[in-house]
Design a binder for these strands. Sequence first.
DNA 1: TTCGTTGCAAACATTTTGCAGTTTC
DNA 2: GAAACTGCAAAATGTTTGCAACGAA
Lengths: 134, 134
Amino acid sequence: MEHAAKHFRKRDAILSCLRGTTIHPSAEMVHDLLQESHPDISLATVYRNLSLFKAQGTIQSLGMIHGIERFDGNTNPHVHFVCNCCSAIMDLHQMDAPQRLCNEAAQHIGGQVDSCQLMFFGTCRACLAKQESA
Amino acid sequence: MEHAAKHFRKRDAILSCLRGTTIHPSAEMVHDLLQESHPDISLATVYRNLSLFKAQGTIQSLGMIHGIERFDGNTNPHVHFVCNCCSAIMDLHQMDAPQRLCNEAAQHIGGQVDSCQLMFFGTCRACLAKQESA
DNA sequence: TTCGTTGCAAACATTTTGCAGTTTC
DNA sequence: GAAACTGCAAAATGTTTGCAACGAA
């Protein structure tokens, strides 16, 4: 078995990648991030495994941001900030996730509320700096 | 000029359509909704005008929901509910839009926050009923 | 040998764009 | 007549899928 450990499945690599980053990557970003350790991984494999993890609830999708689906290996509810300029996504752990409002929403809708998402949009510090120096 | 009013531009029709509905339509839904009054309108025109309105701030985009961009003719900040089953989007006017938290978010991020979006996800009443009867 | 996983390429769905014709003023 | 708008078809983009090959047990 000693060389079984050497043959990491690509699936595991994809999950580790997601858990080890806070950039909230897209499928293509995961593919790029894995190029060094798994240069032969295919984009289809990344897509397939991301769908799988999402269906399992192992990871969460942040939805399509600027036309591209982004993922988060951290499934704890938390708030996000999206830079409209560079499409960076950052965590706002300091802010309260309004999960507790789900019941209130369910009453208004008369349906079942499973989750909620609070997202701020704007321009990140790096992009602001770039704009000023331009 | 009395017959100027008769020659609505398709652009105007698209905007009226958005303002006169609460279904938060996609480009294709707008196209469908306009079929009766403007059977010759092309999907490209709908896309082009929706982009324009969005850039002008005349309408707002709710982002891509289940892979399709949805729009709202109501630019007042308000909360939305998305049915994961039928992709319906409903307003939750009764709930407080957390617009006032933008400043707090900006402090944490160190950038500029322009807008925020609070969205609940779940199953709407109609889909729940369908599921029960199935 | 069997079943799940993968790479490749083709298929798909949504959106954008080039261009030529039309409308508006 | 100039400028803006539109329809059509093609292109571009991101994602999914069919299939044959591969790998682990």
